[in-house]
Amino acid sequence: MSDLLHSALQPAGGTQTPPAVPYSRPTTPGTGSFPVQIGFVGLGAMGGLMAKNLANHRAAHVHASPPILVWNRTQGKADSLFKELGQHKIRVAQSLEQVATECDIIFTALANDDTVKSVFEQFAQTLKHAPPGRQKIFVETSTIYPTLAGELDTLISSIPHCHLIASPVFGTPHVAAAAQLVIVMSGDYRSKKEVAYMLVPAVGKKVIDLGGNIEKASTFKLIGNSMILGTLEILAESYTLAEKSGIAASEVHSLVKDIFPAPGIIRYSERMSNDQFDGTTGFSIDGGIKDASHIRRLTAVHNSPMPSIDIAHQHLITARAIHNSKVQAGKQTVDVLDWSGIVAGTRVAAGLDAFESTHASVVQED
């Protein structure tokens, strides 16, 4: 079905460009004649920016749209977002139970599989005691192992009128802030169609539909992250070789911009070249290790080796171990290590300092 819609929405004549949203628009606004109440759970580096963009867009473009109801494990982030956007765009929920009962569409953006499972179990427990009388859609945007998506689907679909779609996103916090995320979806077709037009262009620039199998979107996200992680490993090895051979990091970064002009690659290259590893403005190394572990598990299940990910996984662990030792000694320069800190693993293996390169002292020979 999605292929037919995709073809039908192609422009006539000339170069055909895939549509940003591969579905026709819903025939009615929202899920009915009532205002759609949106909830957002998880306001971390990505979730906070997604919730902010969604709230701003709906306030500007959707008539009589109620404020988004947000919840975060540490309420300070929810309070900060409320202070920034105001009561007409944001409400702060006091509990997950409030989000589950009051919201029609609920987005989750959480750190790891255990947290995702715990949150959805609380949703399910609440709604089994107070079954909804109208459609409710859950949109799971976290990076999780595919079988967990299947478990969540079974859990949520056992509740009347409830549907789940898996909808992980591609992009750094910088990309999320610019509402340029690439959004992947799998699961219930009507729910995907409903949610897609909420997210584009409010949060992202396009939707990729992977069909009805709920696990496909999570699998696709891990495949995409394997490309990013593999690139990080190559960058780390290249910067380390450059340092050992006396070539300035600025020259390597310039080359990256010339031959790999992708925003994400350039940003990670810039971090490595300048020893900027603050994960509070990027992607934490804990998240990187979690994703690498999921990718390795997936490769084992499908008998499809990825040696580069095995190596990258070890270098991520090495970098985290070194950072943790510096934390214990009170010598860390950042509280949260970004996964571009993977370069610490290759540097140490080459006999260099983990987080402070000597690139700045490289002297060019005549």
Rank of each mutant, 00 (worst) to 15 (best):
Thr172Leu: 12
Gln75Lys: 13
Leu110Lys: 07
Ala166Leu: 03
Ala100Asp: 02
Ala130Asp: 12
Glu140Met: 01
Ala176Ile: 11
His163Asp: 05
Glu84Ala: 12
Gly204Val: 06
Val169Tyr: 13
Pro201Cys: 04
Val139Ile: 01
Thr108Leu: 02
Thr74Pro: 02
Asp188Cys: 09
Cys162Arg: 05
Pro160Trp: 13
Gly76Met: 11
Phe123Arg: 04
Cys103Trp: 14
Ser118Tyr: 12
Ala178Cys: 06
His174Tyr: 09
Asn112Met: 11
Asp188Gly: 02
Ile137Thr: 07
Ile90Arg: 03
Val99Ala: 04
Ile156Leu: 01
Ser80Gln: 15
Val169Arg: 03
Ala111Met: 15
Gln180Val: 10
Glu194Gly: 05
Lys193Ala: 12
His88Ile: 06
Ser186Ile: 11
Leu85Asp: 00
Thr108Asn: 00
Ile208Asp: 04
Thr74Cys: 00
Ala109Met: 15
Ser158Gln: 07
Gln87Lys: 13
Pro168Ile: 05
Thr101Ser: 10
Val195Ser: 07
Val169Asp: 01
Glu102Phe: 10
Asp113Phe: 15
Ala177Gly: 05
His88Thr: 14
Gly133Phe: 07
Ala109Tyr: 11
Gly76Thr: 13
Ile208Met: 13
Val119Leu: 09
Leu148His: 02
Ala178Phe: 15
Thr172Gln: 13
Asp114Asn: 15
Gly171Asn: 04
Glu102Asp: 14
Val92Met: 12
Lys117Pro: 03
Ala177Pro: 06
Leu85Asn: 00
Asp188Asn: 14
Asp209Gly: 01
Val116Gly: 05
Val119Gln: 03
Leu210Trp: 14
His88Glu: 13
Leu85Ile: 03
Val195Arg: 04
Ser118Pro: 02
Ala93Thr: 08
Thr147Asp: 14
Ser95Gly: 04
Ala202Glu: 01
Gln125Val: 09
Ser118Asp: 08
Glu194Thr: 10
Ala78Ser: 04
Glu121Asn: 09
His174Thr: 08
Thr74Gln: 01
Pro132His: 05
Glu84Leu: 14
Arg91Asn: 13
Lys77Met: 04
Ser118Gln: 10
Ala178Leu: 15
Gly86Lys: 09
Val175Asp: 07
Val203Ala: 07
Tyr197Pro: 01
Lys205Arg: 15
Lys89Glu: 02
Met198Gln: 10
Glu151Ala: 10
Lys89Thr: 02
Thr141Arg: 04
Ser158Asn: 04
Asp188Ile: 07
Phe82Trp: 14
His174Cys: 07
Gln122Thr: 11
Ala130Phe: 14
Leu96Glu: 08
Glu140Pro: 00
Asn112Pro: 10
Pro160Phe: 15
Val175Cys: 12
Ser167His: 08
Trp71Leu: 10
Met185Asn: 09
Ser157Thr: 07
Phe138His: 02
Leu155Asn: 02
Gln87Leu: 09
Ser157Asp: 06
Thr126Asn: 08
Cys103His: 09
Thr141Val: 09
Val200Trp: 15
Glu121Phe: 15
Leu155Thr: 07
Gln94His: 13
Thr141Gln: 09
Gly150Cys: 00
Lys205Cys: 09
Gln87Arg: 13
Leu181Lys: 07
Ser167Ile: 06
Val203Ile: 11
Gln87Val: 06
Leu96Asn: 06
Asn112His: 11
Pro201Val: 10
Phe120Arg: 03
Ser142Asn: 06
Leu210His: 10
Glu121Ala: 14
His174Pro: 02
Ala78Ile: 03
Asp114Met: 12
Gly150Trp: 04
Ile144Leu: 01
Leu127Trp: 15
Asp209Ala: 00
Phe82Gly: 03
Gln180Gly: 06
